[in-house]
C-alpha cells in the first residue's frame, strides 16, 4: 500500500503558475531601455524638480533616470554600496568625503536653494528676522518647541552646523523643547505643523508642502542659509556595475547650459526654487 508521490495535475499547474509569475515579475525590469539609478534627496524629489527636468534629460539622451529619494546620508550610502550610478545631494562636507574615499569620481556643483526657518505665525520665541543664528538663539532661549529631522540628512547636518555656530550646545541644552523625528522633511514638517513648532526646512519642500497649519516662514534670506547641491558619478572602479557612460551623461547634462536652464525654469506659484550655479566646464 506504500505509494510514492507523483506530481499530479494540481502540482504541475502550481509549477506553471510559479514560473509564469517569476517571468511576470522580471518583465518590467527587462522591458526597459537604458536607465540609470540616481540616489537623491527628498527635497529635490518632493519639490517636483525631477519630474520637471528628467523628461528633458531623457529626450536629450534617450536615457531614463530613476530617482530614489532619501536623506543625503542614506543617498551617499547607496552610492557607497554601488546601488546608484549617480548621487545628487546637498551636504558639501559629506560629499567631499565621499569623493576622497574613492566612492565618487568627481563632485560638480549644480545649483543651490536655501533653507528657511518656519514657525508659528505668532512667533512666540521672537525668532523672526534675517539672521539664522539670532533666530535659533531666540528659539533656544524661549525653550520654544523645535522639531529636528535627526536623520543624518543634508538638512539635518546643516541644522547642527547652525546650532553650533549660534553657540548652542545641544548635547547639554537638549530639553523637551527639542524634538527629534528621525524622519524626512515632509514628516518633520507634518510634526511641526501639528505641534505648532519651529523647524528648519529647505525652501523647495516647504513650497510644495500643503499641511501648513499655522506655520509660516520666520527666518529667510541669510547668506548662511544657502544650500549647495552637488552631483557625482559613483566610481566604476569601486563598483563594476556602475553605468559609467550613461551616468556620466547625466552628470554632464545637469551642469550643461540645457540642464541648468531646465533647473532655472522650475517654479512653484511663480517662485523659482533652485538656482543653477554650475561652473562652466566643471
Amino acid at each position: 500500500m506504500e505509494v510514492t508521490l507523483r506530481p499530479g495535475r494540481w502540482s504541475s499547474r502550481l509549477a506553471r503558475m510559479a514560473v509564469a509569475s517569476t517571468l511576470l515579475a522580471a518583465y518590467p525590469a527587462a522591458a526597459q531601455g537604458t536607465f540609470i539609478t540616481v540616489s537623491s534627496t527628498t527635497s529635490t524629489e518632493q519639490s517636483g524638480l525631477f519630474r520637471h527636468i528628467l523628461p528633458e534629460f531623457t529626450k536629450a539622451t534617450g536615457i531614463e533616470a530613476r530617482v530614489v529619494a532619501m536623506g543625503t546620508g542614506q543617498a551617499l550610502d547607496m552610492g557607497r554600496r554601488g546601488d546608484a550610478d549617480v548621487v545628487f545631494v546637498h551636504d558639501q562636507v559629506a560629499e567631499e568625503k565621499f569623493v576622497a574615499e574613492g566612492f565618487g569620481v568627481k563632485r560638480f556643483e549644480v545649483m543651490y536653494n536655501d533653507f528657511v526657518i518656519v514657525g508659528p505665525k505668532a512667533d512666540p520665541a521672537k525668532a523672526r528676522g534675517k539672521d539664522v543664528l539670532a533666530g535659533l538663539k531666540a528659539i533656544a532661549a524661549a525653550r520654544a518647541p523645535f522639531v529636528s529631522r535627526a536623520d543624518k540628512s543634508g538638512t539635518h547636518a546643516a541644522e547642527l552646523r547652525y546650532w553650533k555656530a549660534a553657540g548652542i550646545d545641544l548635547a547639554n541644552d537638549k530639553g523637551p523643547w527639542y524634538r527629534e523625528t528621525g524622519s524626512g522633511m515632509g514628516p518633520t514638517l507634518n510634526t511641526a505643523s501639528a505641534m505648532n513648532a519651529y523647524a528648519l526646512a529647505d525652501r523647495g519642500t516647504w513650497l510644495s508642502f500643503r499641511n501648513l497649519g499655522d506655520l509660516e516662514i520666520v527666518v529667510e534670506g541669510d547668506q548662511r542659509l544657502f544650500n549647495q547641491y552637488g552631483v557625482m558619478l559613483v566610481n566604476p572602479a569601486r563598483h563594476a556595475y556602475v553605468k559609467r557612460e550613461a551616468g556620466q551623461k547625466f552628470v554632464d547634462w545637469v551642469i550643461s547650459p540645457a540642464g541648468q536652464a531646465a533647473i532655472a525654469a522650475y517654479a512653484i506659484n511663480g517662485e523659482q526654487l533652485f538656482f543653477p550655479n554650475a561652473k562652466a566646464g566643471g
Binding site: 539609478t37 530613476r66 530614489v68 515632509g186
Partner: peptide, 21 residues
C-alpha cells in the same frame, strides 16, 4: 525605492503624499 513610474505603488505613493503634507 518609490521610483516614479517604476516602483511607485499605492502605499509608497500614499507615504509620499503624506510627507508632502
Amino acid at each position: 525605492g518609490n521610483i516614479d513610474g517604476v516602483t511607485r505603488v499605492m502605499t509608497t505613493a500614499i507615504a509620499l503624499e503624506t510627507s508632502k503634507g
